[in-house]
Nucleic acid binder design. Structure first.
Length: 484
RNA sequence: GGCGGUAUCGUCUAGGGGACUAGGACGCGGCCCUCUCAAGGCUGUAACACGGGUUCGAAUCCCGUUACCGCUACCA
């Protein structure tokens, strides 16, 4: 068996959608798993809708996910000459014929048919024309399209995900392959390109199932070797409808901006419509996915995009990834949020890594880390009123506690076990559990109700910042006591 | 309308005639751990669309119904 060649063939009419990303991923995974090639073909022949900007968005999305293609990008628009030549070959070999029916006429006949019998199918009237008449009308400059003459019988194939699918040819009309202006129609262009690119497995969305018999007939008429086909199910939104902008973030770039990691996105997408089977750990690296990927695990049913699970998946990858890989991402986001500069964080590398280690376990996205990192980066904190209302309920009491904490901490070596010993001793002399100390301290030091463990907070914050924040809290509590 | 595709917990799925009192994961609830929040551990909730067959035996095979999705262009 020759090595498989697959392609992802998006039309550049928007951003890279998660559905398209998954199609690309499965193609890529299959190629990697079987030592084949993964190619990218931009289907830009719809000049009205294609833009360079969306072509770039597709490249960026694929690059971000790590789905690199193995050969130079193929632009479909550059191959119209070959498409046309293939269509004309079909005309010459008698597999296709000229049709002089105008679009307006066809439109009218279609409307009439729909009003009466329902379905409209081209009646092949131009196939009755004799050769001389066709030649005369062409010579006279009358515009015509080229239609493929669909043969009798059935057209079917063994789909890698659906097993066997077949269509009675009588339900397929003699479809146009060349427009009157000489440009190719989609099915012609795709088939011509897939043949030229030596694609052995056409893996795409199942919205292409009804195009497949037409393409198969084209392969046969052109005498080209038949590839295999695999039709992947769609991805739906939480309401079961096809995923669209209404459902929120549907572009992979949206998730990138929300702090989702590419490896988490890949992992999540891989499990939408595919399963390695049996029991397995759902959190997998890209290499594990490649090793396990198998067309037999492809599902037939549409899947709902569950953002909750994506976020959980991201949290898992956040904890498992190398700190050296996470640090630059976090630095960039923190800098973008204006909390520190990248170079400053880089200089405090060891300290920053300690902080990340503390935060990533309680974060689901990189953006969560940025939010949680704030108290450790800014000069002074603002108090979350909910947190203050609870932990500083009795302002005078909280003040007294914080004064004692400040006095104790001021004379202690800044090291976790020493700090712990000192604070536990303080709690004991005051006849309270150490936990009673931490609530008020947490608000004073971070402004929040939640944070990493108290001793970790103290160490990461450092002596000076800690004492300054305690002093600031005491002042604030004075104000609160006065008001009450 | 015609043609095609699909149908297991709310969601992602395992399952491919008996191992199914249908398993796992997310979510949700409870408990444990615990200075808070997470993480982690344990645990609970919850599904084979419906109706006929085939078979000693169907979630698994066949047919029909229903629902949903896709296609039905001189779009891609």
């Amino acid at each position: 068996m020759t090595t498989p060649r697959l392609r992802f063939a998006p039309s550049p009419t928007g951003y890279l959608h998660v559905g398209g990303a998954r199609t690309a991923l499965f193609n890529w995974l299959y190629a990697r798993r079987h030592g084949g090639q993964f190619l990218l073909r931009v289907e830009d022949t719809d000049k009205a809708r294609s833009t360079d900007e969306s072509t770039r968005a597709i490249f960026e999305g694929l690059e971000w996910l790590g789905l690199m293609w193995d050969e130079p990008v193929v632009y479909q628009g550059a191959n119209v000459e070959r498409h046309r030549a293939d269509a004309e070959r079909l005309l010459a070999s008698g597999h296709a014929y000229r049709c002089f029916c105008t679009a307006a006429d066809l439109d009218f006949r279609r409307k009439v048919a729909e009003a009466n019998e329902g379905a409209f199918k081209y009646d092949r009237r131009c196939d009755q024309l004799d050769r001389d008449e066709v030649a005369r009308r062409v010579a006279a400059g009358e515009p015509s399209v080229v239609r493929f003459r669909v043969p009798e019988g059935n057209t079917g194939w063994t789909d890698l995900v659906h097993d066997s699918i077949s269509f009675p040819n009588k339900d397929i009309e003699d479809f146009v392959i060349l427009r009157s202006d000489g440009t190719p129609i989609y099915n012609m262009a795709v088939t011509s390109d897939d043949i030229a690119m030596h694609i052995t497995l056409v893996m795409r969305g199942d919205d292409h199932i009804s195009n497949t018999p037409k393409q198969i007939m084209l392969y046969e008429a052109l005498g080209a070797p038949m590839p295999q086909f695999a039709h992947l199910p769609m991805i739906h939104g939480s309401d079961g409808k096809k995923l669209s902008k209404r459902h929120g973030a549907t572009a992979v770039a949206d998730w990138q901006h929300e702090g989702i990691l590419p490896q988490a996105m890949v992992n999540f997408l891989a499990l939408l419509g595919w399963s390695p089977g049996g029991e397995f750990d759902e959190v997998m690296s890209i290499d594990e996915l490649i090793a396990k990927f198998d067309a037999a695990g492809l599902r037939k049913t549409a899947a709902v995009f569950d953002t909750k699970k994506l976020e959980w998946m991201n949290g898992q990858h956040l904890v498992r990834m190398a700190l050296d890989e996470l640090a630059p991402l976090a630095r960039r986001k923190i800098a973008a949020a204006g909390l520190a500069t990248e170079s400053d964080l880089e200089q405090r590398g060891a300290w920053f890594n300690t902080l990340l280690e503390l935060l990533r376990v309680r974060a689901r996205t990189v953006d969560d880390i940025v939010r949680q990192a704030k108290p450790f980066l800014v000069a002074s904190v603002e108090y979350d009123e909910h947190a203050a209302a609870k932990a500083w309920k009795d302002a005078a009491d909280a003040r007294a506690l914080l004064v004692a904490v400040r006095d104790t901490l001021a004379g202690v070596a800044w090291e976790a076990t020493a700090l712990e010993t000192a604070l536990k001793a303080l709690a004991e002399t005051r006849g309270i559990g150490a936990g009673k100390l931490f609530g008020p301290m947490r608000v004073a030091l971070t402004g929040e109700a939640n944070s990493p463990g108290m001793f970790d907070v103290l160490v990461v914050l450092g002596r000076d910042l800690t004492l300054a924040r305690l002093a600031a809290a005491i002042v604030d509590l004075d104000r609160r006591t006065g008001v009450t």
